[in-house]
């Protein structure tokens, strides 16, 4: 039986694997989703406790709450990590269900822009509540 053709590859396995798979930076995306989800476990529990106090609170009570640096810090962490996690998750959903490449790319960019603007708006609001009080 004829020997099957072989080819010598001069590059290391690592250099071939690094960033050249079909998913390009798929592992980084997956990992970031897990890291943000772990951070959101305690932050979400804290957020629920905060909401017991702040749903129905007056505006001056909200200002007073945000004036505490611990509250402002945790709220900024919650907002930043939530929107990062959200953008990662929505991107996967869009990649799965939008089959036309141009539409998919356009809508993912739009989603990233909206998510970033929402995050920035929330951060500006928290900083104003915390600092301008």
């Amino acid at each position: 039986m004829e020997k099957s053709p072989t080819q010598t590859i001069m590059r290391s396995g690592l250099s071939r694997a690094r960033g050249l798979g079909s998913a390009k930076s798929g592992t980084a995306h997956w990992w970031a989703e897990r890291v943000t989800s772990i951070a959101l476990v305690p932050l979400t529990l804290w957020f629920i406790l905060v909401m017991f106090r702040l749903v129905g609170a007056s505006r001056s009570e909200v200002y007073g709450w945000a004036g505490n640096p611990v509250n402002a810090t945790l709220m900024l962490a919650l907002v930043g990590i939530t929107f990062h996690h959200m953008a990662l998750g929505l991107q996967v959903v869009m990649e799965d269900y939008i089959h036309d490449e141009k539409t998919r790319l356009g809508l993912i960019l739009l989603m990233k822009a909206v998510t970033a603007l929402l995050a920035i708006a929330a951060i500006v609001a928290v900083l104003k509540l915390a600092l301008v009080g």
Binding site: R59, Y63, F83, M86, G89, A122, V126, L129
Partner: peptide, 22 residues
């Protein structure tokens, strides 16, 4: 996950409103 993404609009609205005016 998608519903919560939509729900963040309410959180941002609430925060921005609190920082804006009575």
């Amino acid at each position: 996950g998608c519903a919560l993404a939509a729900g963040t609009l309410l959180l941002v609205w609430w925060l921005v409103a609190a920082a804006t005016s009575d």
